[in-house]
């Protein structure tokens, strides 16, 4: 059965000034999948990820060509409101970046600016469910007023995931979310991703192939700004079509 993709990128090019960073990338993201973007560093996977919620807008020299849709709607259409888009397509960054606020306020920040809660109770509930969904509730329920920066690295990253969830997004982009974490914290995040699958479309950039194999259903292999191969994770890792993919996966370079 043919599924409709949640997000669809068609012939996307990205330029930083004269530098051609992404070359003709086409990729479908499905709502119920975790999609992993892998590839050697500098291959453009993070750049591509940042196109999906227009985070490249803040870089003056960046220019995006091609078409990216969210539910068949072009997100680079001038009529599309970037604030709204980013609320629907959330993002988690490489290094945990909690705001210099309390744990509660970190989570409540998004709902507050978007006016998602009608009263304090609703806000409390949103904060609690977000923390529960991010698997952080048990650890922080007694210290919601503690600063977010006081948490450990892994907790901070789950706080950032909870923060993204609180805005009620449809897609969550994760840019190497575990690269700054130790193995135990990484395992927890991976567990969380598995937990969140199905409720959010998840796109995760990772340089760790085992991680991609563990958490994702679809995998795209990026190389020098192009998608070399895209397909079911199982196929990519067991039976890659392209020679380059095979070389990368078997550790010949990267």
């Amino acid at each position: 059965m043919e599924k409709t993709p949640k997000m669809q990128a068609t012939n996307v090019h990205v330029y930083y000034g004269d530098n051609h960073a992404i070359n003709k990338v086409s990729l479908d993201v499905f709502a119920e999948d975790v999609t992993a973007l892998i590839g050697p560093s500098g291959c453009g996977k993070s750049t591509f990820l940042r196109c999906l919620n227009r985070m490249n807008d803040s870089i003056a020299s960046a220019r995006v060509e091609g078409k990216i849709t969210l539910d068949q709607q072009d997100i680079y259409d001038p009529k599309i409101d970037v604030v709204q888009l980013r609320a629907r397509v959330g993002m988690v960054f490489q290094k945990p970046n909690p705001f210099p606020k309390s744990i509660y306020d970190n989570i409540a920040y998004g709902p507050r600016i978007h006016g998602l809660a009608r009263n304090g109770e609703e806000m409390d509930e949103m904060v609690i469910t977000s923390l529960q969904k991010a698997g952080l509730w048990e650890e922080v329920k007694d210290r919601l007023e503690a600063p977010g920066t006081a948490l450990s690295g892994g907790q901070q990253q789950r706080l950032c995931i909870a923060r993204a969830i609180a805005v009620n997004p449809e897609v969550i982009l994760m840019d190497e979310p575990c690269s700054a974490l130790d193995p135990i914290a990484t395992a927890k995040i991976e567990e969380l991703i598995e937990d969140l699958r199905g409720r959010f479309a998840i796109v995760i950039v990772t340089h760790n192939m085992q991680q991609a194999a563990r958490v994702s259903q679809k995998t795209a292999f990026f190389h020098l700004g192009e998608v070399i191969e895209y397909g079911d994770t199982a196929d990519i890792f067991t039976n890659p079509e392209k020679e380059k993919t095979k070389d990368y996966i078997t550790g010949r370079y990267g």
């Binding site: 709204q84 609320a87 629907r88 978007h114 006016g115 998602l116 469910t129 529960q132 969904k133 698997g135 805005v167 009620n168 449809e170 567990e191 969380l192 937990d195 409720r199």
Partner: peptide
């Protein structure tokens, strides 16, 4: 950790109140 089964209702961005906001 058990899967939270709460209904995932998407935010209605198109509503007039939201657009005004």
């Amino acid at each position: 950790m058990s899967k939270n089964t709460a209904v995932h209702a998407p935010t209605v961005w198109g509503s007039e109140a939201m657009q005004n906001r």
